[in-house]
Design a protein around this nucleic acid. Structure first.
Lengths: 222, 222
DNA sequence: TTCATGAAATTCGTATACGAAATACGAAAT
DNA sequence: ATTTCGTATTTCGTATACGAATTTCATGAA
């Protein structure tokens, strides 16, 4: 016999649905989120909606507006910059920690992700490429064995996904990204932790620069 | 005119009360948290309690136990180590960012905190020393201008406070801590960002070592 | 026409109610 | 005496109800 059904709670499902809608841009920045409306759309009562919104507020995905509910937080250039400063410190650490823990199975998984990202990039599947990007970095977080890194960065990727909605339309720019991913993982596979960490550091430094150079008018909003 | 009363919601107050009770050790690890009991003790209904617990669960302060509510998460040595790995990367970054942003006012504030910490240490006020420690590092987070660092580390300090409950009884060990704090802030005041960052890096490396060496039998539980 | 004023309608926060699921406990059978 | 099964109790998740506060809209005065 084995486990029956995880069947998450309505609060979790509501939270996930709202977070996804915010990150994909289905809910625009500044848009008001009414509890009644959401409850009706999701076919649940206001109670799970209220709890989910409380979490989103604690995580800065929505902000309070005076006394009448919340609205979707603006896509903030400062927040974007802050996250990249943090990534610049955390991602190399994750690589250092993960490299000596690599198993044959995880090497296979990593190569699959790199291959998938490269393939989807050539197929101009912007959304798929972003997902592969998230998968690549998340794999390293998990391999690091440091659950704090995993938790922190999962939240941060939520914010990043919002900003990257704008960048998604320039798949060509991600060619260099996937070359770098490949090089990073190669160094990790060979056990060269510090080399891989340096490559990752450079990768993170390059990333916001790419965003800024590729999106002429959108720059100011990032 | 200005704001009338912040008057936080019951959810926030409940969350704060529970978090504090967990961090100070008033709620022991493994202890079951019944919603009814908490609601009665705090003189609120179960609804805010339920929301608050959902947040604490997302932040790993409590864990699910089968189908019957939650219990206080164990004080986990692995989590402690993970946080220190992250701190080793984040704290020097915060110092680098904060140093060029120091104002005369913030220099005064920093010196006050160092003085207070040193004074309370000599007065054997362990709890006050811990608070000063938190204040010192939090000041740097805020001066860094990076709100992600502030948010992340505030959560982490919640977990750290739990572990440090054990260490509090050895105030003598904090002598070196406050010497290092003083040196770090001195370098920052002089604008030597990279020197200060290196001192901070060493400070974080030393910290868990101090904990391990000072608490003979308690080591295994950390 | 424009601004002020007040009543009606929204909408949120919190309390209470209800149903489902798990535990605890006791009775009966081996 | 021990184990097993059924029932009562506890407790959580979710729905609904209620009160307070704000917004909206209409009505009237300058």
């Amino acid at each position: 016999m084995e486990a029956i059904s995880p069947s998450k709670s309505l609060v979790d499902k509501t939270y996930g649905a709202l977070l996804d809608a915010i990150c994909t841009g289905e809910f625009r920045p500044g848009q008001r989120l009414g509890q009644d409306e959401i409850a009706e759309r999701l076919k649940v009562s206001r109670q799970p909606v209220n709890s989910a919104i409380a979490m989103l507020r604690a995580q800065r995905f929505v902000i309070d507006t005076g006394r009448r509910g919340v609205e979707v937080a603006p896509v903030d250039a400062k927040l974007f910059e802050s996250i990249y400063q943090v990534r610049g410190a955390i991602e190399p650490l994750a690589v250092e920690l993960a490299t000596p823990r690599l198993s044959p199975g995880s090497i296979t998984r990593g190569r699959e992700i790199v291959a998938r990202g490269t393939r989807l990039m050539h197929a101009n599947d912007a959304r798929g490429v972003l997902q592969a990007d998230i998968d690549f970095h998340t794999l390293i977080y998990e391999l690091s064995g440091n659950e704090i890194i995993t938790d922190m960065m999962q939240l941060n990727w939520g914010h990043l996904r919002r900003s990257m909605g704008e960048v998604l339309r320039f798949p060509g720019m991600t060619l260099q990204v996937w070359k770098e991913h490949k090089a990073i993982f190669k160094a990790m596979s060979e056990g060269s932790a510090s080399v891989a960490a340096d490559l990752m550091r450079q990768h993170i430094v390059n990333a916001p620069r790419r965003v800024a150079s590729g999106t002429a008018p959108a720059v100011s909003s990032l």
